[in-house]
Design a protein around this nucleic acid. Sequence first.
DNA 1: ATGGTAGCGCTGCTA
Length: 259
Amino acid sequence: MKLATFNINGIKARGEALAAWLAEAAPDVVCLQEIKSVDEAFPREGLEAIGYRVETHGQKGFNGVAILSKLPLRDLRRGLPGDDGDEQARWIEAVVEGPRPLRICGLYLPNGNPAPGPKFDYKLAWMARMEARVRELLASEEPFVCLGDYNVIPQAEDAKKPEAWVTDALFLPESRAAFHRLVNLGLTDAVRARMPGPGVYTFWDYQAVAWERNNGIRIDHVLLSPQAADRLQEVGIDKAVRGKEKPSDHVPVWVRLAD
DNA sequence: ATGGTAGCGCTGCTA
């Protein structure tokens, strides 16, 4: 089973780029972030026509996540538990009904800038809530995968210019510590495990010719539960997508697990 | 130190 995460930065602006990548990569399950659309406006028909079930958790203008799946889904959940007052659409979860069931968590972790400030506080609180959800899932001993835009640069080698990020919420010690706490619960960073850095990136800013200079960062991650890690076969980053027409500033990251 | 780009949606916010 091939699972991918792709921050598409606006589903309405990315229809062609998404369709072209799906045709080439043929993932079974895709977690999308930053759909920037309400559920009713999500262009689902074209995706359904090529065999994907579409589940969205959107909001107006910003954020928004979705799951595309060629396989049936059950136990669909929208929103990260732990704060009933949180209106931001950043978490979607479901169990994929393959030969062996697999739980998928698609996430768009808060950016957190500027730091310090309320947005950074929200990021850290959100990460604490995610840790609580991951602890629950680990206790259940079911296989699961958390895919998405984590907005965290885990280590200096995950940035072309780490010195440019030292005061940024993506690289501040508190953000990195929270990410490492999550991983150290017993998850496997699939890209780190199979594609050791430096020089492995998933995001290049639109500004300052970052792509042309390969001034990237690694912030899109796939974390595997122990039972899912046992099934890991292959990992990839579809970097070429960033060089095509009207690209997202992120590229797809994928894993292949034994069925 | 500044400003550089893109998406959404219509003004400025978010990243």
